[in-house]
Structure formats: structure tokens, C-alpha cells
Nucleic acid binder design. Structure first.
Lengths: 312, 312
DNA sequence: CGTGCAATG
DNA sequence: CATTGCACG
């Protein structure tokens, strides 16, 4: 019982007056942090000039999302009228891709999918676009890192868009070393190569909350996958120090905005979240970002979508 | 969200007027067969003298059944006011038994459980009784056959009650030979041993539709697990020829009554079923059977319960 | 907690 | 077409 990803104007959602994440972000506001509330904090839409809207969402199983009946599946993302949608953790197999493509709404005819060959129903990414890319590239070009379908790149006129699902360091941090010493540098090198010809935008689930502001309980998660010292340093040295800008943090230096809430302890209700999903951009286009935002009202996954409005 | 297995008088179910299995049993009635309709074909309840009511049900996962919200779970079996309930395919692990016992309704304090040690969440039986048995025995006493938790025996004053979940011959009939040359004879021998001291009642999912009348599509299932020549012959030679009486068939020589409908093709709606669940009794007590019946209106599993009312 | 696989029926 | 376990997050 899959649903077409269509939307009518009268389906558009009116956000409720007071979102829980506004109220509950932090009982004791600290260090000048403020809750990120998309209703109040986002700039007015651009009315003049050209812009492109990119979105990114870790869907935690696309087939499950397509069956999801609750408030807002992909329809809601489409409310955003994005030009390009990047997905992670589609958990599709190659054989599923064709049937899932049938669910795409009209206008988004260009879609590019990676699946994990190593483990079925694991990982997987997609770029879905109404703009036809100039070229598309799957993986990093390093066979060691390309068997899990974690990277897809689309080249557009004025930038490369790299969509990735970074490996989770896993229970017991058994993949931490692979992640920080192999994967992150390889991805970073790949981006620096691309950047020689055009600015690069990296999006996806980077599986790292960079700073204490990016996680609800920093003290309790110092050895949790996604918030180890090693991952946070790797995030800094491989991406930020190499000239990629965390667009959300640049725009909102003090905003507490999460993009992931574990299912395990009902974290979404109480806003016990992490910011794991990012838009990083080459310094050369950092000032062209009109809005880097989070859409925490979108359900259907343990992550919510994020968006980037870029002047072009 | 487990439910207590309680029942109130006003929860008692009124059966609908025309059950589908009456109408659809066989489009072309053949060979004098008649549909088994529990509303019309069952004898009046016993009013004088002592009787005991035994029931048996392959629940296909007891934890799933306890969550089941539809028309009738164990409450409905309890409508029957049984003295003893035998379950098969509980799919419990040893560690689950204590918590499931908490769901038992008052009055059924005696319960005896077997679980598969070989494969977790597989097979498993139980005897739940308001009469305290004189003794209880787990397995057949043959280690080769006792690792899958398929047999539990309770001794009562006037009979042994053997509750079993007979091994399915499996896809490709890969376990057919084990089933017919090892299991069935071992079970039969075990029963004959018990019978030296008391009459024996065997109940459970015997995983065999004995005759053509016991299956909706005999021609199409000649090499299907449960209706092979080998299993049917084994059923005859190991049980019937050894003096155990198929009580349902004795009472209703021409009734088409099924106890199992595969999920795969929506078989229950169209009554494409099999009779796989039985009460067999020692010849010496065959005439004490007041009613051997089927309760096809009870949902929650791919099998329905069966019952035996025995004068004691 | 929830996705998806695999084995089993 | 269901149940269960298991891996992964």
C-alpha cells in the first residue's frame, strides 16, 4: 500500500502554535543558547533573484516511509517546494529502486540511487532532482569505501552536490577507527578534488554532533558513537579546517537545533536530540546561503529533514 | 501492551447467523460430505454427570496473540469454560515464560511449558489447567527428539493428556523422513507405554490432514507437507492402527471441518483449510466422548481451537 | 524502539 | 502472509 508522493494545495500543513521543541529545548538555557524554532527564526523567503532549494533527509528506510500514514511523509518535504532532495538510509536493494521510482511525483524526473551491495537493506542514498544534473558520480572512487552505497554526487551549473551517509561508529565503537582514519579523510580528499573545478556542497547524515550545543546530553555521550572526541576532531580537521562551512552554525551561532532523536527513549517528545545532519559548503559560496534550516515538524523517521536555500 | 486474559459475561460472543465456512465449504458437495457448522451440529451440553472439557490451539506465537486486538483472542477460548487448554507453537523462550504466566486468568494456576532450546522463538507447547495434574512430563524421554519443546504430558485421574506439536515436514519435504520414520513412531511408542497404566488422550497440531475430506484441495497438495502419502500412512499406522481414535471423525464421519487456513492466500475467508489439529483417544474411552468439536470463529492465529468434552 | 533481513510455516 | 530472532542504529 504505497502512496503516491503527490500533494495538493489544501494539504499544506499549518504548524501548531507552540512546538514542543521550543518549550523543551533546554530547561535551563545555558551559555546564551537559544532554541531553534523554524517558525520564528527563519528569514523571509527570497523574492528577487535566483535561488535553489536543496533538502536532505535520513529517512531510516524508504519503503517504511512510503507506508507511513501519520502527519507528514515525503508530502511534507514537498510542501517545501525543493529543487533537489537528498536521502540517506533508504535501505533499498537495487531490485527495489525501479518500483520506488514509480512513487516520485511529477517534476522530479531525475533520480540517482546507491544501494549497499555488502549488506542488503542497509545504508543507501538518493538524489532526487527537478533540475537535470550535468553529471552524476557514485561512490568515492575507492572500492574499499564504495560497497555500502554511501555517496552519490550530482554536478550542477554552479556547484557539486555530494550526498552522503557517513558510517556510524557502531556499538562498542568498533568502527570508530575506520570512520575517522579512513572514511572521513577519503571523503574530504574527494571533496577537495571536486573543489578544484567548482564549489562543493556536502549534505547528509554526517553521524557526528560537532559541539556540545549540538547534542542534548554532551556529558553522558562522550563515548557514544557520534560524539566521541575522535569523531568531533575528525569533523573539524577533515571538513571545517579544510574550508567547508557548517552553514547552520554560521547562520545561528547559538541556536540549539537537532535533526535526530533516537527512538529508544522517546527522545523526540522531550527533544533529546542530536544535530547529525548538515549542509557544509565551500567557503567561496558560504555568503550565498540565504537560509540553512531544520524542519523538525516532519515525522516518519528518527531524523528530520534539513534545508538549504542558496542564491545562485 | 499485553492484555489480561480475563472475560466478563457480557463479552460473550454471539455467533453471526451464517458463517462463511458453512456456505463455502465446498461449492460442489461431494461424496455425501457436509459442512461442519458448530452452531447446528454440536450436541446439547451435558447437564447430568461429570465431564471435563479440554481444548487445544496452535496459537502461532503466543506473544503476538496476547497483543491481538481483533475479534477474540484467548478470551474467546475462555468463553468455552474449558478445564484444560493445550497450546502449540507458543514460540516462547524459557526467559519469556514467567512474564506470560502473569497473563493467565485466575483459576488456571497450573501451567506447564516447553520451549525449543535448539531454535529460539520456535515451536513450544503449554498445558494450562484449572485441575492440578497428578504428574507432568516434558518431552518423549528421547534426547534426539526433545530439544525443540514439542511434547508435554499431564497425568490426570483417569487419563494421560499428551500435548504435541508434530514437526512440519518443511519446504522441499526435507524433514519428511525424520518426521515419518523417527518422530511419529517415537511418539506412538511413548503413548503405548503410557497406555499400559491409563487411557491416553493425544492432542495438538499433528501436522497431517489424514484423508481427502480433511483438506480443501487434496489433488493439489499430494506433495505438500502435511498431506503426503507418507505422512498420511504414518498417521494411520502409528496412531489409528495402534488403537487411537480420531474423535472428530468418529463423531462426524462426513463433516468437512478445518482447523488451519494458511495466511498466504487468504485461505480463511474462502475456507480453503486443512484439518491438522486433533483429539485422539485410547479406544477404551472413545465412547466417553460427548463432543469433539472445532471453533472456527476464533481468530488470532492461522489455526483455530478445537475442543473435547469427555464424560468422566 | 524501529527498520530491514532471514528462517519457518 | 504471518510469526519469530537478529543486525544495525
Amino acid at each position: 500500500t504505497k502512496r503516491k508522493l503527490s500533494i495538493k494545495t489544501d494539504d499544506l500543513i499549518t504548524l501548531p502554535q507552540a512546538e514542543p521543541w521550543t518549550v523543551l529545548a533546554h530547561k535551563k538555557p545555558q551559555k546564551g543558547w537559544i532554541p531553534y524554532n523554524p517558525r520564528t527564526i527563519r528569514p523571509a523567503p527570497l523574492t528577487d533573484g535566483n535561488s535553489v532549494k536543496l533538502m536532505s533527509w535520513n529517512v531510516n528506510g524508504l519503503r517504511a516511509l512510503l507506508k507511513f500514514e501519520g502527519f507528514s511523509a515525503l508530502e511534507l518535504a514537498q510542501r517545501e517546494n525543493f529543487d533537489v532532495l537528498c536521502l540517506q538510509e533508504t535501505k533499498l536493494q537495487d531490485k527495489d529502486v525501479d518500483s520506488v521510482k514509480q512513487c516520485l511525483i511529477d517534476g522530479y524526473e531525475n533520480s540517482f540511487w546507491t544501494c549497499s551491495n555488502a549488506k542488503l537493506g542497509y545504508s543507501g542514498t538518493a538524489i532526487i532532482s527537478r533540475i537535470k544534473p550535468l553529471s552524476v558520480c557514485y561512490g568515492l572512487g575507492i572500492p574499499d569505501h564504495d560497497s555500502e552505497g554511501r555517496v552519490v554526487t550530482a554536478e550542477f551549473d554552479s556547484f557539486y552536490l555530494v550526498n552522503t551517509y557517513v558510517p556510524n561508529s557502531g556499538d562498542g565503537l568498533k568502527r570508530l577507527s575506520y570512520r575517522t582514519t579512513q572514511w572521513d579523510p577519503s571523503l574530504s580528499n574527494y571533496m577537495k578534488e571536486l573543489e578544484k573545478s567548482k564549489p562543493v556542497i556536502l549534505t547528509g547524515d554526517l553521524n557526528c554532533a560537532h559541539q556540545e550545543i549540538d547534542i542534548y546530553n554532551p556529558a553522558g555521550n562522550k563515548r557514544s558513537a557520534g560524539f566521541t572526541e575522535e569523531e568531533r576532531r575528525s569533523f573539524g580537521s577533515n571538513f571545517l579546517s579544510k574550508g567547508f562551512v557548517d552553514t547552520f552554525r554560521k547562520q545561528h551561532p547559538n541556536a540549539v537545533g537537532y535533526t535526530y532523536w533516537g527512538y529508544r527513549h522517546g527522545g523526540r517528545k522531550t527533544n533529546r536530540g542530536w544535530r547529525l545532519d548538515y549542509f557544509l559548503v565551500s567557503e567561496s559560496i558560504a555568503d550565498d546561503v540565504h537560509d540553512s534550516y531544520i524542519a523538525p515538524d516532519v515525522n516518519g523517521s528518527d531524523h528530520c529533514p534539513i534545508g538549504l536555500v542558496l542564491k545562485v
